[in-house]
Computed example of a mutant assay.
Amino acid sequence: MELRPGDVKGWCVADMVGKALRVLSLLGEYPDGVGLSELARRAGYPVSTTHRLLGSLQEQGFARSDPASKRYALGLRLFELGQRVSHARGFAGVALPVLRALTEQTGEPTLMAVLDGHQQVYVHSVQGPRQIQIRGEPGRRGPLHCTAMGKCLVAFAPDREALVETLELAGLAPRTITSRAEFAREIATVRSQGYAIADEEHEPGIRAVGVPVLGPDGHAIAALSTAAPAYRMSVAELEAFVPALREAARELGAVLPR
C-alpha cells in the first residue's frame, strides 16, 4: 500500500486531536487544577508535547491556567458547550427550579450568568408568561459593564479592582457608562447596596435588576437578574423584585458548585 503525503498529514492531525482529547479528559479529574509535569506523566506524553497541547486548548477556551499556582484546569468553553447540549435536551439542573419559582413570583424572565474573564456567560434563562420576553440564550456571552448581572459579577469578583480598571467600556447604547470614574462609582454602589440596575444601558428599551449569588468567601459564583422592556417596567418596579431575587440567590448559593 502506497502512502500519500495527504494520508500522513491526516493521520498526524488525528493523532494530535486524540492526544488533546486525552489531556482534556484528564483535566476533568482535577477540579482544583494539576501541574504540567503531573499531567504529562498521567497522559504518557513528553512535557513539551503536553505544554503545546495545553497551549492550543487554552487558546480555544477549553483549558485555563492559574499564573500563581501554575496549575491547569478545564476552561469555561466546555461549560458553554455543555450548556447548549443541556438546554437542547431539556436537562433541568439544580438552578432551574429556583429560577422557575422566581419567574412565577415576578411574572418576568429570570436569567443567570457566570463570570469568564472580561465577559459573562449566560447559563440559564426561564421565560415568563408575557408575550414580549428578554432572552439570555445559555452558552452565549455578554458584556459586564452595562448589564445588571455583569455589574454584580464585577462588584463581587475577587479581582474587582483589576476589572474596574481594565474592562473595555464600549458604548453599546446611549445610556451605557463609558467613563472609568463613573463606572468605578457604579460598582462601589452595587457592592454597597447588594444589587445592580441596568437602565437601558445594554440595549435601548431594556431594563434589568440583578443580584450576586455569593459563595462562603463573599465572592460571586453567579448572578441572577430579572429583565423587562422599559415601557412595561420602571426602575422602582424592578427594585421591588430585589427581596425575591436575594432569596433565590441565597438558595442557589447553598447548592451551586464552587
Rank of each mutant, 00 (worst) to 15 (best):
E2M: 10
E2Y: 01
R4H: 12
P5Q: 04
K9T: 13
G10S: 13
K19H: 10
L21M: 13
S25I: 00
L27Y: 06
G28P: 13
D32I: 00
V34F: 03
L36M: 14
A43N: 04
A43V: 14
Y45M: 15
S48K: 10
T49P: 00
G55Q: 05
G55R: 09
G61S: 09
A63M: 04
R64L: 12
S65P: 00
D66T: 03
P67Q: 06
A68W: 03
R71K: 15
L74Q: 06
G75E: 08
L76S: 06
L78A: 07
V85P: 00
H87I: 00
A88E: 14
R89I: 01
G90L: 05
F91M: 08
V94Y: 02
A95G: 11
A95T: 06
P97E: 04
V98Y: 04
E104T: 14
Q105L: 15
E108V: 11
T110M: 02
A113D: 06
V114F: 07
L115T: 06
H118G: 07
V121Q: 02
H124M: 00
H124N: 13
H124F: 01
Q127S: 12
G128H: 01
R130E: 12
Q133R: 14
I134L: 12
R135L: 15
R135N: 10
G139C: 12
R140H: 12
G142T: 13
P143N: 09
G150A: 09
C152G: 09
D159P: 00
E161P: 01
L163M: 14
L163F: 10
E168D: 13
E168R: 12
I177M: 07
S179R: 07
A184E: 12
A184H: 04
R185Q: 14
A188H: 04
V190E: 04
G194D: 11
A196P: 03
D199M: 07
E201V: 06
P204F: 02
A208E: 07
V209N: 05
V209R: 02
V213Q: 06
G218N: 06
I221G: 02
S225N: 11
A228W: 03
R232N: 07
S234P: 11
L238K: 05
A240K: 10
F241Q: 09
G253D: 08
V255Y: 06
